[in-house]
Design a binder for these strands. Structure first.
Length: 501
RNA sequence: CGGGGUGUAGCGCAGUCUGGCUAGCGCACCUGGUUUGGGACCAGGGGGUCGAAGGUUCGAAUCCUUUCACCCCGACCA
């Protein structure tokens, strides 16, 4: 009776649970290529929905889509010193452009390239190169470009969606005439990400600034949104970088001012990736499977016909089809309710669990008995028990129910974060917070520690043995004077610290 | 790149120490039947060069040598 859809459960083995969710919900699987994943239709549909919403938000804020090459000349990457250092260790490099039959019957690379090509780990350098050509006058600014693409970072350890060698993302790149304008852009896009995370993914986030050690290689300032997963670890869900004039100086992105003088542009970059799918899973899903916020769910309602005798089939199917049509005409979140009839020949229980595991928000079961009463048997993914409801009432309320589920998921996630965020005033307290009670089999512990700190090497060094990292200094904080719990130095900055993905 | 571990059917595993008939088990899959408002049951069936190469032997999943791949823990990261 207490059987769960997913085994192991979150409390038994959280990483194991995560893997099983990805599998049971049919989101993705490992590929023959190490570190790379195959995203399956249900998982890709989630990404497409995210893309759709974000793309609209980027366009509303004045950005245009473009596309730049997958390959970057090695020399480009060498131009910005910190950038090189940050990415060199994880680059895939193309050195040849041809295969020839080898002595043992296999194929061997031939046609060595004059200059090796890097498979983009990110595109600042090649986009900057083009920006330098496109920008001549202050009238060409601001230049606000986004691209949807894949990037490759040769990671040593991978987890589906959270960290893969190749991942899908969007990267925005902008150039501005003034520092202030570029800073505004950096903050604006962080706000866009936060709005998307909270309102669409129902995932509460903390907006903040990264410490120097956690900053994007080559950036003057990195802002991020940080979310708490159900194991209380932090996940960086999106970043927005103020690049100052570092890249424009390295790549000669300059323009002529109104007064005839010449200036370097101020640039930004910002991105979110398929990691958001991982974030979605770890924010809402439970021991029965995936749980999807309705605004991101590929389908809102699945109708499962209950056919007991062959004679009933025609009538039940007809009823389901007409119900699907009627529901499809209802508006939710500015679009039609996404409804489908599952007429596969799975048995009832199996079919029900199939959709529970995949996180379809609402299941409707329709059999002869329901048809007779003109009612539906309704299962909500956020509630354990199904219930009956008159058809007309459901049609009228479906949009409201979806909205309620969306809000419920957000509230629940926010409560988890609030309950596991602690104000910390001493290093001893800090250590205790991040030390599991049972060393042999560490339980879920810790959370977000909020405390005064000074961003310096001493602080970083004290965090290393605890496996805790500074997540960010929240942008929304009042600056009362305090004392750094690590170094004892005076400070006005409070930071969020956590174990992280 | 360090430390540990694992490779046997689509997935999860047993068998390896102590070599022996046709390599098993659970789930999944296919067929037939009984079922069907909640992850069915019965019967039958398909699918393996036991990670790869070499060696020892009458005989190797099992022993020896070499090698490859993957996983976990570190270091590194969206």
């Amino acid at each position: 009776m207490a059987k769960t859809g997913i085994s192991p459960t979150r409390s038994e083995d959280y990483p194991g649970w995560y893997q099983q969710i990805v599998r049971a919900a049919d989101l993705a699987e490992n590929s023959p290529v190490r570190g790379c994943m195959v995203i399956k239709p249900w998982g890709y549909a989630l990404w497409e929905n995210m893309q759709g919403v974000l793309d609209g938000m980027f366009k509303e804020t004045g950005h245009e889509n473009a596309y730049f090459p997958l390959f970057i000349p090695k020399s480009f990457l060498e131009k910005e010193a910190e950038h090189v250092e940050g990415f060199a260790k994880e680059c895939a490099v193309v050195t040849h452009h041809r295969l020839e039959p080898g002595p043992d019957g296999g194929l061997v690379p031939a046609g060595k390239l004059e200059e090796p090509l890097i498979v983009r780990p990110t595109s600042e350098t090649i986009i900057g190169h083009m920006f330098a050509k496109w920008i001549e006058s202050y009238r060409d600014l601001p230049l606000k470009i986004n691209q949807w693409c894949n990037v490759v970072r040769w990671e040593m350890r991978v987890r589906l969606f959270l960290r893969t060698a190749e991942f899908l993302w969007q990267e925005g790149h902008t150039a501005h005439a003034t520092k202030e304008e570029a800073l505004d852009e950096t903050r604006l896009m962080l706000d866009v990400y936060a709005k998307f995370a909270e309102e669409y993914m129902a995932m509460p986030v903390i907006k903040g600034e990264k410490t120097e050690g956690e900053r994007f290689p080559g950036a003057d300032m990195t802002l991020s949104i940080e979310a708490m997963m159900q194991d209380r670890k932090a996940l960086q869900a999106g970043t927005s970088h103020f690049l100052g004039q570092n890249f424009s100086k390295a790549q000669d992105i300059k323009f002529q001012n109104a007064d005839g003088g010449e200036s370097f542009a101020w640039t930004t970059s910002w991105g979110v990736s398929t990691r958001l799918v991982g974030a979605l899973i770890m924010t809402h899903s439970d021991d029965d499977g995936l749980v999807l916020p309705p605004r991101i769910a590929p389908k809102h309602v699945v109708i499962c016909p209950v056919i007991r005798k062959e004679e009933e089939r025609a009538e039940v199917m007809e009823y389901c089809t007409s119900l699907a049509k009627e529901l499809g005409d209802v508006q939710y979140d500015g679009k039609r309710v996404a409804v489908f009839v599952d007429d596969s020949d799975k048995r009832g229980g199996e079919k029900k669990w199939f959709h529970i595991k995949r996180g379809v928000p609402i299941r409707l079961e329709v059999g002869p008995r329901d048809i007779k009463n003109d009612s539906l048997f309704v299962g909500r993914r956020d509630q354990p028990k199904s219930f009956g409801m008159p058809r007309a009432e459901f049609v009228e309320r479906v949009s409201e129910i979806l909205a309620e589920m969306q809000q419920g998921l957000f509230d629940k996630a926010l409560k988890l974060r609030v309950d596991n965020t602690q104000q910390i005033n001493s290093f001893d307290e800090f250590k205790a917070f991040f030390t599991p009670k049972n060393e042999g089999k560490p339980e879920v512990h810790g959370g977000f520690a909020e405390c005064y700190f000074v961003d310096c090497p001493e602080t970083d060094a004290m965090l290393v043995p605890l496996k805790v990292t500074p997540r960010c200094a929240p942008v929304d904080q009042d600056s009362e004077p305090g004392v750094c719990i690590f170094t004892g130095k005076p400070t006005q900055t409070r930071g969020i610290f956590a174990k992280s993905y």
